[in-house]
């Protein structure tokens, strides 16, 4: 039960400022970026008409997400945005899956990762809106339907960031806490492997997909 509230940190002092880095999150994020790099090298080395297993897997994934993007954003913008959405999905999928390996932490268990990704999605969506509609139309949309509803619209946009990032963080964090508590109660017998499979593989996959789809939907809402 000791591992619940603990965050492993590197602390160092720089000119009177105390700097804390979450070591597990950083190391795991770099590890996952390395894994994605290995996967892409395996998938794109020796491309052929009859694909090998890695190429086939990556083509399946990229094609599926491209269809999703073209459905949501339309032909032109979907083709422009699907690399981003695809990268987001693969990164989150590996982030959530790496927790099933012992002694590995999910980077998404840290609010910094998810909030960072949520804020990235926010800026991309609003940047796209300004780019597509022009600044004037973009600003006047906040004063619809009546001008004094402007604060509500702004708060609504900010609440999207909070909701999307806290959803992913809470799901992964809650899953890991339930695994720790049940392992403590059942002395690690029988139950924990199934819980790892449920929270790591099933919930992890669904939450990665939900985060990706919601980012896509936020962009689509701004374009329309």
């Amino acid at each position: 039960m000791e591992g619940i509230g603990k965050v492993s940190q590197w602390v160092f002092h720089l000119g009177g400022m105390r700097i804390e880095l979450n070591s597990a999150t950083l190391l795991m994020t770099w590890l996952i970026m390395g894994l994605i790099l290995v996967f892409t090298v395996l998938a794109t080395r020796r491309r052929e008409m009859v694909p090998g297993p890695w190429q086939h897997l990556s083509e399946l994934l990229v094609g599926w997400i491209k269809d999703l993007c073209v459905d949501a954003l339309g032909e032109q913008w979907g083709k422009r945005y699907y690399p981003l959405i695809c990268a987001l999905f693969i990164f989150l999928l590996l982030c959530n899956w790496i927790g099933i390996i012992p002694y590995m932490d999910e980077p998404t268990k840290d609010l910094n990762t998810t909030l960072g990704l949520g804020i990235m999605g926010f800026f991309i969506a609003h940047g796209t809106a300004i780019w597509v509609k022009g600044p004037k139309t973009y600003i006047t949309e906040y004063f619809k339907p009546i001008f004094f509803l402007m604060p509500l619209n702004v708060v609504g946009e900010l609440a999207k960031v909070v909701s999307i990032s806290f959803r992913l963080f809470g799901n992964i964090m809650g899953g890991s806490i339930i695994i720790i508590v049940v392992s403590y109660l059942a002395y690690g017998l029988i139950l924990p492997p199934f819980l790892y499979a449920f929270f790591g593989l099933f919930v992890g996959t669904i939450q990665a997909f939900v985060f990706t789809v919601l980012t896509l939907v936020y962009i689509a809402v701004q374009i329309r």
Partner: peptide, 13 residues
């Protein structure tokens, strides 16, 4: 379901 779950997740946080 994952979207409607979010209020429960807020209370967890």
């Amino acid at each position: 379901q994952a979207v409607s779950e979010s209020t429960g997740i807020y209370s967890l946080v």
